[in-house]
Amino acid sequence: MQLGFLVDLHLCMGCKGCEIACKVENEVPLSTWRLRVKYVDVGSFPETRRTFTPLRCNHCENAPCEKICPVSALHYLENGIVNIDKERCIGCAGCVMACPYGAIYIDPQTQTADKCTYCAHRIASSMMPACVVACPVQANIFGDLDDPTSNISKYIQHNQGNVQVRKPEKGTNPHHYYVGGGNVTLNPLASHRVDGHQLFNKITTLPVGGHH
């Protein structure tokens, strides 16, 4: 079994329901996020559009975070999920530095690394991840990539030629796919990030782990 995720960006409307569901399900502390939806505005008036990109851990086949972790706190589960053992983590932040997707953070309460686990605890009870359940337009598709009859496999087959991963050049082989993505949505270098100028939030950066 190889669990994977696919987000159809044609469907996502940026409601952030997944973001909130994740926060609640996993009790993610203030100032940190396991899953977030990034808005990027493209074009010049009147030819403009807004894109929405949910960003979470990519559960890479060749995960840099797993390799760099000195104590195996980050480890693979049999179903392909890259999981984290917070009890074992020493908080060296090597994983935060290694992840090319910025998906790992230091939990300010426990001072250990944390990230999306595809809701491994829910999967163990045969439930879908919280973000999948919360999505009102079924933009999040989750399932077994090894099973050709699973929804995610069928979706990938149906959208051949339009399935992307983030930063494929890194050689991490993500198990998280996007349909309808492009340079602007998937490449952070392809958009301006103006300090302090956002719709509802003027904070651009926060201290790692609440101190340092």
Binding site: S31, W33, R36, K38, Y39, V40, D41, V42, G43, S44, R50, A93, V96, M97, G102, Y105, I106, N183, V184, L189, A190, S191, H192, R193, V194, Q198, L199, F200, N201, I203, T204, T205, L206, P207, V208, H212
Partner: peptide
């Protein structure tokens, strides 16, 4: 921030995102 060729063509701007982690090491 580096000015990339793509910016001039698309004028892409991040308009809403969470705060990113500061200096890790």
């Amino acid at each position: 921030m580096a000015a990339h060729e793509i910016l001039a063509a698309t004028n892409a701007v991040v308009t809403l995102d969470v705060a990113l982690p500061g200096i890790v090491w």
